[in-house]
């Protein structure tokens, strides 16, 4: 029996050596840049967030300008659990936040996934802004514009204190990212993941072969919501603070740009896009915010015109060419 030609390594079960690279880099980063661990954890969190967007955008083809709604829901859930309800055990907080975001994602998805195109775009956007306005208005719970203060975390597993250098936070984020990644990798490699790809490639045909398209999309949306909620909760827990911008349109845009820069529909795009984006931002914004904004705008335009499949897509294209030319 011949093996099918899968271009995407994730569609074969075996782990390729190159797949270890990002994890190796993340582990090395811990030892090589001890002063940058806070940025490091934020990068890991955004990787997780971008990966969750990839599930709906890159696999199911749902264009959402409001993915921050789910990230923010997770962040505020984890934050409020600790600051108001005294629930400061991190792991259970993470799970609860993921579940709450999942419920919100399911309800929103159930309503908006009937629509397509501009309408869907506008609905995702409107829901996010609505939530942000709500968070802004409910000052008692969220701290409004000043952000949610008073989030404290108990030691992880009762053993590891969250330290000032962010070592525990970094390793915590890395471990969570790994666990969620393994789940996501399994999902996109499953028949369900294949079915999502079919919806992205040709929704009409999926209907014609009897696929319950709406139900599959809603499931993907809900799973992505749980993942985004976990990412948001991680941010709240590791920074012990929740700002209103977790729900902003800008954050939805940022995460989408990260994913596009890295490459959609391959999970690992998030691992490239998020670090590149955030390190560039960290460095360029220090010079001047305008440079950064202009730079990212130009990079985005160039990516769309010349490398619509992102950096990973570009690398793959040249990789494939090299392999073809080799005997």
């Amino acid at each position: 029996m011949e093996q099918p030609a899968y271009r995407n390594p994730l569609r074969t079960g075996a782990v390729r050596p190159t797949e270890l690279l990002p994890w190796l880099a993340a582990a090395l980063g811990f030892f090589l840049f001890p002063d940058y661990l806070q940025l490091g954890s934020q990068i890991l969190i955004m990787v997780l967030f971008a990966m969750s967007l990839d599930l709906i955008l890159g696999y199911a083809g749902i264009v959402s300008l409001g993915h921050a709604a789910l990230f923010g829901t997770g962040a505020y859930t984890a934050g409020i659990l600790s600051a108001h309800l005294g629930w400061s055990e991190p792991l259970s907080g993470l799970v609860i936040a993921g579940l709450v975001a999942g419920v919100v994602g399911f309800v929103c998805g159930a309503v908006i996934l009937y629509t397509r195109g501009l309408t869907l775009l506008m609905l995702t956007l409107a829901v996010t802004i609505l939530l942000q306005e709500l968070a802004n208005e409910q000052e008692h719970w969220t701290g409004g514009d000043d952000g949610l203060q008073g989030v404290v975390m108990e030691p992880l597993l009762g053993l590891f204190e969250f330290d000032l250098y962010g070592q525990t936070a970094y390793l915590y984020a890395l471990a969570v990212l790994f666990v969620v990644f393994v789940a996501a990798r399994t999902i996109v490699g499953s028949s369900f993941g294949q079915s999502l790809r079919g919806i992205r490639e040709n929704e009409r045909r999926m209907h014609a072969i009897g696929c319950p398209v709406y139900r599959q999309m809603l499931r993907a949306y809900t799973i992505a919501a749980v993942m985004a909620g976990i990412a948001g909760a991680l941010l709240a827990q590791t920074t012990e603070f929740v700002a209103l911008d977790v729900l902003s349109f800008e954050r939805s845009g940022d995460v989408m740009i990260m994913l596009i820069l890295g490459g959609t529909g391959r999970l690992y795009g998030a691992f490239i896009g998020a670090p590149v984006y955030m390190i560039l931002q960290d460095q360029l914004a220090r010079l001047s915010p305008e440079y950064w904004l202009f730079g990212i705008g130009a990079l985005l335009v160039a990516t769309i015109l010349y490398a619509p499949e992102g950096m990973l897509g570009l690398a793959e294209r040249y990789g494939v060419r090299a392999r073809r030319e080799a005997p």
Partner: peptide, 28 residues
């Protein structure tokens, strides 16, 4: 269009066999 010929027909076959809803079973 972006999938292989085999993946195209397998899409229909998995739908018919009602395995397309399964999250934890690997496609290949």
């Amino acid at each position: 269009r972006g999938l292989s010929v085999l993946e195209n027909v397998c899409m229909a076959i998995s739908e018919r066999r009602a395995v397309a809803a399964k999250l934890w079973q690997r496609a290949d």
